[in-house]
């Protein structure tokens, strides 16, 4: 059940406003406030109770299953989890590196593609078509196939200086795919800025580039930040896919440990670590979205 939005406590009137301080609230208003408080408390209790009930039922159903003891031993063994943690953590460090490097490259490449698609005029038609084709292609291909094509195809070319490290190739594949998505997010943002803004900027004599940089993009960024953060959360777990190229990341380490111990707990550990990684970004995305909403709406009840 959705939590009711808590009423912000009324700030104390520190300065006496013009016209004198307000008289004390009437009994009617006090009773209304009391009623709202009771309502809020009741909603919270109902939400809490229903959550606890659900958790209890889920717990009972799972633990009473006939296979539960076996599942518990093979998936949730504390000792295996503790032993596997250091190796999985060192693997996660590789994922983090891919995430940071890849994330930055995705932002740059995605923005470039979006700006190319936003170019006007027939002279830029080839560029636009190229950018559109790129987006269509890499948004359409499953990431894992891009990873195989890049990870095994590029080295097979045997070109001088072609990197062979799965770290580099995996990052390239992820950047190719995610840039296509992020380019579309940026493009949506650019198009969401009202044409009148462009008209105002161009009539001040700003060039297309200046208009984009100074007027359109700052407004577009504000609109798309929540969507970008959402893509970032998706990227955080997809970096685990570089394991298919043989990079020893968190997923791959877990796989190796599973093979050694015949116990699946390392997968659960790796999964939990990815969740821990994603939670702060998810909360940040929530906060940014809420802030954008507050800024765009001038209060009121609805």
């Amino acid at each position: 059940m959705a939590l009711r939005r808590r009423r912000r406590p009324r700030p104390q009137l520190t300065t006496v406003p013009p016209g004198g301080a307000l008289p004390a609230p009437s009994p009617l208003e006090l009773s209304r406030r009391a009623w709202r408080r009771r309502r809020a408390r009741r909603s919270t209790l109902v939400a809490l109770a229903s959550t606890l009930l659900f958790a209890a039922v889920a717990y009972l159903v799972v633990t009473s299953a006939p296979g539960w003891p076996r599942v518990q031993a093979t998936f949730f063994s504390p000792s295996v989890a503790w032993e596997s943690l250091p190796e999985i953590l060192s693997g996660l460090w590789l994922n983090l590196q891919v995430l940071v490097v890849g994330g930055l490259l995705v932002l740059v490449l995605g923005l470039l593609v979006a700006l190319t698609r936003a170019l006007r005029g027939p002279a830029f038609a080839p560029l636009r078509i190229l950018a559109t084709g790129y987006v269509d292609l890499f948004r359409g291909i499953p990431l894992i196939i891009t990873l195989y094509l890049v990870g095994f195809g590029f080295p097979a070319l045997g070109l001088q200086g072609m990197p062979t490290s799965p770290f580099v190739l995996g990052t390239v594949a992820i950047v190719l795919t995610y840039s296509a998505y992020v380019a579309e997010v940026f493009r949506a943002g650019i198009e969401s800025v009202h044409p009148s803004q462009r008209a105002a900027a161009r009539s001040l004599g700003l060039t297309h580039r200046q208009t984009m940089r100074i007027v359109v993009l700052p407004q577009a960024m504000r609109t798309v930040t929540p969507a970008l953060l959402n893509d970032f959360v998706a990227l955080q777990k997809d970096v685990g896919l570089i394991s298919v190229l043989g990079a020893v990341d968190a997923v791959r380490s877990a796989q190796i440990l599973v093979g050694q111990s015949f116990n699946f707990t390392p997968y659960v550990v790796a999964g939990l670590l990815f969740v821990l990684l994603a939670v702060p970004s998810a909360r940040l995305a929530d906060a940014v979205t809420a802030r954008a909403r507050r800024r765009q709406q001038s209060g009121g009840l609805l």
Binding site: R10, L22, P25, S26, L28, E29, R32, W35, R36, R39, G299, G300, L301, L302
Partner: peptide, 22 residues
Amino acid sequence: SLLETVDDGQVLLDGEDVTDPR
């Protein structure tokens, strides 16, 4: 029009207190 909650007082529509949170 109940787009804001009042901080005190009442609004009656056809005699009904519409500022009552109920």
